[in-house]
Design a binder for these strands. Structure first.
Lengths: 195, 195
DNA sequence: TTTTCATTTGAACGACTGTTCAGTTAGATG
DNA sequence: CATCTAACTGAACAGTCGTTCAAATGAAAA
């Protein structure tokens, strides 16, 4: 029944996602037209609608897929040990996961305002889950007396902003490699919350 | 000669800037049309061209004005003392200046990719000046032996990302006031670079 | 070989885009 | 009062926008 070989949808579908992600990261959602995406994929604009009901859903699917990957990967990382060890683990996880995905990070943080309210709420909730994973570590550390932060919620937001900011300026092949960056950020993060 | 009283341009001009800033911060440069701005100002679209040569320049003027205000205010702050005191001063200055200007911060960080290359270069240079002010403090602290950072450039970027991130989630009337926020961030920043 | 249908085309829809400009308006000037 | 002109209108220009859909395509299934 369902065609297996020779079906172009297996190829075109991912190419639509990849192209949309790259173009939106570069120019912004509102500045990229369906015809631009189609042209880079190598089809006419109408063909895109075999792969997304509309432009808004195309954006939302990109962002949701990214957030889901983040949460799944974090769960798989299975951070263990005392709070400082888990904080180091979280820092290294964030950098290792996000640095190779600059386009996803860019889109996920810049295009939130272009989401329909119900889609925004879904992503905000997923984002909150990620933040909570870090805040739990900080709270445990405070309870254990190894961290001293005046406010775990704010420390969480501050650390995540610091880590996310990295993705905005880091370029592969720059002065420092990912491993060196990782060490430096672990040092900064760890000290900022230590007693 | 030049009309003084009753001249609308003294009123309409600033209103164009204010309206454009607010709409662009909310919806993004590409998503806001000249007709939307005009409608909120209360004029027809054509009238906007008495105040800006084109849409691109309108955006650039908003962003350049903001960065110039930042640099002027920082120079006026005239931070003195030992490196820890100057770092505290920088942290407090950044928060006090940026928190009351969320729309400017939003536009200045989100719309860089919508600038023409020559305009982008100008803003990037002003941004670099601001970053250098912080890096100088960190370098002096390292030289004096009161700070220990593996890399002053990265610590600079990390701290600025942390501080800028604050503007993205802080809302007036929230759980904590600006003064409390200031204390918490001074604590986090100071500890992250201390020996 | 014929049939079937997933896939794509190409044209069309109405609406909106930034920008220009001749003409109108209204308030200050002489 | 008549004049002047800064400020603004309203229409027009040549495109582009997201989206729809009948028709064409071509490879797998029968």
């Amino acid at each position: 029944m369902a065609r297996k070989q020779g079906s172009h949808s297996d190829i075109t579908g991912p190419r639509v996602q990849d192209t949309a992600l790259r173009l939106i990261a570069r120019h912004g959602y509102a500045a990229v037209s369906m015809r631009q995406i189609a042209a880079e994929v190598g089809v006419q604009a109408g063909a895109l609608y075999n792969y997304t009901p509309d432009k808004q859903t195309l954006l939302f699917d990109l962002m949701r897929a990214h957030m889901q990957e983040v949460l799944d990967a974090l769960a798989a990382a299975d951070l263990r040990g005392d709070p400082p060890a888990r904080l180091d683990g979280f820092t290294r996880f964030h950098i290792r996961f996000h640095l190779p995905r600059p386009d996803q990070v860019f889109v996920s943080y810049m295009e939130l305002r272009n989401l329909a309210p119900e889609n925004f709420a879904i992503l905000e909730s997923m984002r909150r889950d990620y933040e909570t994973a870090l805040e739990d570590i900080l709270r445990d550390g405070v309870a254990a007396g190894v961290f001293a932060v005046p406010d775990t919620r704010i420390a969480t937001m501050a650390i995540i902003a610091m880590l996310t900011g990295l993705s905005h300026w880091y370029r592969e092949g720059g002065r420092l490699g990912m491993d060196a960056i990782e060490e430096i950020y672990c040092n900064l993060v760890q000290k900022s919350v230590r007693r």
